[in-house]
Amino acid sequence: MSGLRHTKDAPGAKPTLIAETGRLLLILFAVTSVLVPLLWIGFAAFRTPMDLTNPGSFTINPTLENMREVAKGDIPGASYRSFLVGGITTIIGLVVGSMAGYSISRFKTGGVALRFAILFPTIIPPTVLAFPLLALALQINISDSLFAVIAAHLTIVVPMITWFMTGFFAGVPREIEEQAAIDGLGPFRTFFQVVIPNVLPGLGASALLAFMLSWNELFYALVLAPGDSQTLPVAISAFNTFQGVKLGPMSAALLLTVTPVIFLSFFIQKRLVQGLGASGVKG
C-alpha cells in the first residue's frame, strides 16, 4: 500500500486537472452528505416550532425552548441508562473479547476458520435475533431491563472486539512472552503485565468503538426494553408521536446524543484504521 502511495507522490507524476477535480468533487460530496444532516439538526435544535413548520425558510429566532423540553422529559434518565449500558457492555466486551482475541492469535484456537467466523454473528440482522432474544428475556424475567439490552449489545460487541484485538495481538513479538516465562511469570500475569500493555492503543480503540455501537443502537433496545428502561435512541424515537414528529425537541435531543460520538470518533479514527489494517492484513 505504501508502495502505491509512493508512486502517486512521485515527482513528475502529477495528477491531471480532470482527475484532481473529480477527486475534490467526490470528497465534497462525501463531506456534504455527512455534514448537512448534522448542521440541519444543530440548526433545528434552536429554532421555534413555528419556524420549523416552514422547512424552506432559514429565519431563526434562537430559542432554548427545545432544550428545556428535552431536559424536562425522559432524555436525561435515558442518557444515564445509555451510558450505563454502553459502559457495562464495553467492559464485558473488552475482558471477553481481548482474551478470546489473544487465544485466537497466539494459540490458533479454532484455526483460521474461527478468525473470520467470529464476525459471522455481526452479519445476522438484529431483526432476526431480536425476537428470539426477547422470548429468552421474557422467560428468565429480564425483559424491559438493561440486562436484556446489554446482553443483546454483547452479541455485536464481543465478536467485533475479538476480531479487532486478534490483529493487535498478532503484532506483539512472541519473544516478549518467552522472556516473561523465563523471568518467572505465569500465563495470566504474562497476559496482563506484559502483553496487554503492548496493545493498549488497540484496547482503547476497541473500547470507544464498542461504546459508540452500544450508545447508538436502537433496534434491540426498542424491542427488549421499550418501557421504563428506555435507552437514549429509544427515548428519542419517542418524539415521533401520533401527533406527528416533534422536530424541535427531537433535534435538540439528537444534538446531545451525537456530540459525544463526534467527539470520540475524532480521537479514535486514526487507531481505528490502524486496527482494521492490522486485523485484515495478517490473516
Partner: peptide, 13 residues
C-alpha cells in the same frame, strides 16, 4: 538461565 533474544524482547511500556 537468562536468554537474550535477537530482537531484544524488551518490555516496551
Amino acid at each position: 538461565i537468562a536468554f537474550v533474544f535477537q530482537n531484544y524482547a524488551l518490555y516496551a511500556h
